[in-house]
């Protein structure tokens, strides 16, 4: 009896551990698909960062749409990788999210511009429609303007390895 009682803390702990394990397994965000996948890219009329002219469409080709901002440290971290992708001939469109256009221009001058063009989204309207909850986020959009995949967080070689297949499939 007394011996068994000594196991009580261990059993409680194991029970808690199992609870945690189940809980964590359930909430696997990396496989949680964005509800927007398979849907059309939202409509927008916004200015570009570069020329300040109004634009309302993405290019008619498979593109990466990258949501970024100068206030976002992770965006800085992923920027070099975007430059590399651009150099490999991959089309990237930027959404400059809740940011200052002047700062954005400076940033592009300082770190290089991997984007075909940047859509300026100072109020975060487009971001809201895309369900963005924090920069950086990256979407794969095909030539018909359908969203095919989404990644939350910085884009790096590991992530790209997984996304590249989706990207190839869109061509």
């Amino acid at each position: 009896m007394k011996r068994l009682a000594l196991f009580v803390p261990l059993v409680i702990f194991i029970g808690m551990g199992i609870l945690f394990w189940i809980g964590l397994g359930k909430e696997d965000k990396s496989v949680l698909p964005s509800p927007l996948i398979g849907k059309a890219f939202p409509q927008f009329i916004l200015n570009t960062v570069e020329s300040g002219e109004s634009t309302n469409h993405l290019p008619q080709e498979p593109v990466l749409v990258n949501v970024w901002a100068t206030w976002c440290p992770t965006c800085k971290a992923e920027h070099q990788f975007l430059n590399k992708l651009a150099a490999e001939g991959i089309s990237i469109v930027g959404i400059n999210y809740k940011d200052d256009t002047f700062k954005a221009k400076q940033w592009l001058k300082a770190y290089g511009n991997p984007y075909l063009f940047n859509i300026s989204d100072p109020d975060g309207q487009l971001g809201l429609e895309l369900g963005v909850y924090g920069a950086p986020e990256t979407f794969l959009v095909d030539s018909q303007g359908i969203i095919r995949a989404k990644h939350v967080g910085d884009l790096n070689a590991d992530v790209w390895q997984k996304m590249a297949a989706d990207f190839e499939a869109m061509k």
Binding site: G23, L24, E27, D28, K29, S30, V152, G153
Partner: peptide, 13 residues
Amino acid sequence: GVLTSVHAFASDP
């Protein structure tokens, strides 16, 4: 961050 949000864990399994 698991105590404030389960997402924190899942984002870096």
